[in-house]
Design a protein around this nucleic acid. Structure first.
Lengths: 203, 203
DNA sequence: TAGTCACATGAAGCTGAATTCACATTCATG
DNA sequence: CATGAATGTGAATTCAGCTTCATGTGACTA
């Protein structure tokens, strides 16, 4: 976590630093991202950096936390409010759309997030361990519940299907992130996608 | 590319080095993998390493080349032989099964490959640039052809669908790689998966 | 004015990993 | 054996990044 000094900074300066950090980690994986890069981009002195953060790892953990929180907000909107009354596939649609909206509005954060998820760096593995309950296991629960409820057919492997859905979700975000010019298309693609998945999974 | 001296080595020694390298790069991403690790695991002197390779990057490029070649062999078996006469979904099934078989028989190579695909390291991006025609674009071609042929419905986005299929393929390999004990289940899962995809994509 | 506090600064130091290099050893050949 | 070309070796060097530290600055208080 950042030190008190960081929080005491003016919002302008705080944002300049955060912005620089987001740039640096969006463009590079954890190892390739340099504290030096953040320092140069934000225009602070190297010494100052260590007055605000315990070091590179500290900054990175902080960033990941921010990203998670911000992404959750997008999902919350539609899903968390209407917990288990929604049809599984409508829920999925909402989840994906939330994810996409997040990706569209925060491409740099998605870049960092994708990297974080796939990285074999100790730091990333460490952080992920502490938040396993999220994502994959969340999907798995949803699926098991959907089977019980009768939305989804019985003869599928919940663990694999969870992985499958998560992975497709990432592919989606990635796709949106890579191809800039398809804002209108996007939601159509998602609907198609869910239809594909639905026709394969429903009872 | 390795230097002449490497090729002159006895097969035993060559393999010891390759094995060590595969271990090191399977356990760590490009930046975290150390030449020192390879040196220690293979029991050669650090100086010798530089007599065989131009350095870390050189070794890595060589490894990736080996992996690609080896994976292609698995796909070739069923697909390349019967090029465009197969129904798209049968072809897909063969591709996935080839991928899975490769993953089952070469888990360490899959680990390196996954890392390679996702990495933002300059070296990886560099290598990928040089082989773009593969994978994604290969799928895209297949899909366009399948649409023309009438196997696949018209109103899908080929680029996205290609990304989708590639990503699912990776999820599959990942899944197999992570969960050791499901050899018998595996092919069933793939069939289910293809059925899901087929019911969503076919005309 | 002097004292103190919070923050700023960048040169200097530290660290770990890649690479080099001077010397040692092996081995085929005459 | 003698020779030298190829190969092996690991301590020393280099280098890039992270981190520390001694010192500077300005604002507020007594």
């Amino acid at each position: 976590m950042p030190k008190e000094t960081f929080y005491n900074l003016s919002d302008v300066k705080k944002n300049k630093i955060l912005d620089a950090a987001i740039d640096e980690f969006a463009e590079n994986d954890y190892h390739q991202a340099n504290v030096t890069g953040v320092i140069e981009k934000s225009g602070i002195a190297s010494g100052s950096f260590y007055q605000y953060f315990d070091g590179k790892k500290d900054l990175y953990k902080y960033l990941i936390g921010i990203i998670l929180k911000r992404k959750l907000k997008y999902l919350n909107k539609e899903v968390m409010n209407s917990p288990e009354q929604l049809n599984f596939f409508d829920l999925l649609r909402q989840l994906y759309k939330g994810g996409i909206q997040f990706a569209e509005e925060n491409p740099r954060l998605v870049a960092i997030g994708n990297n974080f998820i796939n990285s074999k760096s100790k730091v990333c593995i460490d952080i992920r361990e502490k938040q396993k309950p999220m994502s994959n296991q969340y999907f798995e629960k949803l699926i098991k519940y959907a089977i019980k409820k009768g939305d989804v057919k019985k003869d599928i492997d919940p663990a694999f299907t969870a992985k499958f859905l998560t992975s497709v979700n990432y592919a989606l975000s990635d796709f949106i992130y890579a191809e800039e010019g398809l804002k209108e298309n996007t939601m159509v693609i998602i609907d198609d996608l869910i239809n594909i998945i639905e026709s394969g999974l429903k009872k």
